[in-house]
Write a protein that binds this DNA or RNA. Structure first.
Length: 271
DNA sequence: ATAATCACCTGCTCGC
DNA sequence: TGCGAGCAGGTGATTA
């Protein structure tokens, strides 16, 4: 479900309710997520203060006690703030009960998300150490995309969705950024010019930033930390619009499948 | 090293 | 109305 803008929306929505507070209790109702929630997670965090809530790519990091809780929302996860009186419902797998009367509640029907306990240098952890730069940081630009793409023959869409190259662009925003940059998603990554990569990097940055401003994209069930949906859906130019007229040239958008992922583009506007 | 596919899981929509 | 097929916002592991 969530790409970078949805995770960032979640982070911003929950941080004011838990940063600086103590963890009263960690309740795990279903530990069978993508990886088993470690049995000792509650004992590591209960009674400890949440120092910060940050994000790396699509991972959320809760600095607490002697380590870090690493949370991923997977495809269908959401994390929101509820009151302790609100009874848990179906697929509410984890509660992080904070002092002060608020609960972070993790819901994830498909259970592709995770809750892991990390100690030591988080950036050296297996899941984080090979990640590319944050798309909204100075480390990300057209030069990086150009340099890393030389010799690559796979589609540029896969290339920009590869977290080792740059984090945060999932299927929705990869489609959108390629449309904005006027680049066909099936073009070989290694055969795109430096100038076009400058444009693409700028468009990836712009579409993610705009989506964050709108609170993310809600397709069916995404809600931010405040339980509200995102409003970027109405801004989508191509994703989910196969067969419908291109908003720029009015020709019908083409929908194809690249590496099993739905891919929508305009054959006239994207080359 | 790169590229494609598989796997994990539930829920929803579609066509018959 | 029921049922199987296919698809969904991610990504690590496996296979060529």
């Amino acid at each position: 479900m969530p790409e970078l803008p949805e995770v960032e929306t979640t982070r911003a929505g929950i941080a004011p309710w838990c940063e600086g507070r103590r963890v009263e209790q960690l309740i795990v109702r279903e530990s069978r997520l993508r990886w088993l929630v470690p049995d000792d997670l509650p004992q590591h965090v209960e009674g400890q203060r949440i120092e910060s809530v940050s994000r790396r790519g699509k991972y959320l990091l809760f600095r607490v006690g002697a380590g870090t809780i690493l949370v991923h929302l997977g495809m269908s996860g959401s994390l929101r703030v509820v009151t302790p009186e609100e009874p848990p419902s179906f697929h509410d797998h984890v509660d992080l009960v904070c002092e002060g009367g608020h609960v972070l509640r993790f819901n994830d029907p498909r259970r592709f998300g995770c809750w892991l306990w990390l100690e030591g240098d988080v950036s050296k952890h297996k899941l984080l150490r090979n990640m590319g730069p944050e798309p909204l940081s100075d480390a990300f630009d057209g030069a990086l995309l150009f340099n890393k793409s030389r010799g690559r023959r796979g589609p540029v869409k896969n290339f920009i969705m590869d977290g080792k190259i740059v984090v945060g662009a999932g299927n929705i925003y990869a489609n959108e950024a390629l449309f904005a940059a006027g680049i066909r998603p099936d073009r070989a990554a290694g055969r795109i010019s430096r100038e076009r990569y400058d444009r693409l990097a700028a468009e990836i940055r712009a579409v993610l930033a705009a989506a964050i401003t709108q609170g993310g994209t809600t397709l069916r069930d995404f809600v931010g930390g405040d339980g509200k949906p995102g409003y970027f859906r109405q801004e989508l130019q191509v994703y989910g619009r196969g067969g419908q007229p291109c908003r720029r040239c009015k020709r019908p958008l083409k929908e194809v499948r690249i590496s099993q992922r739905s891919t929508v583009f305009c054959v006239a506007c994207q080359r």
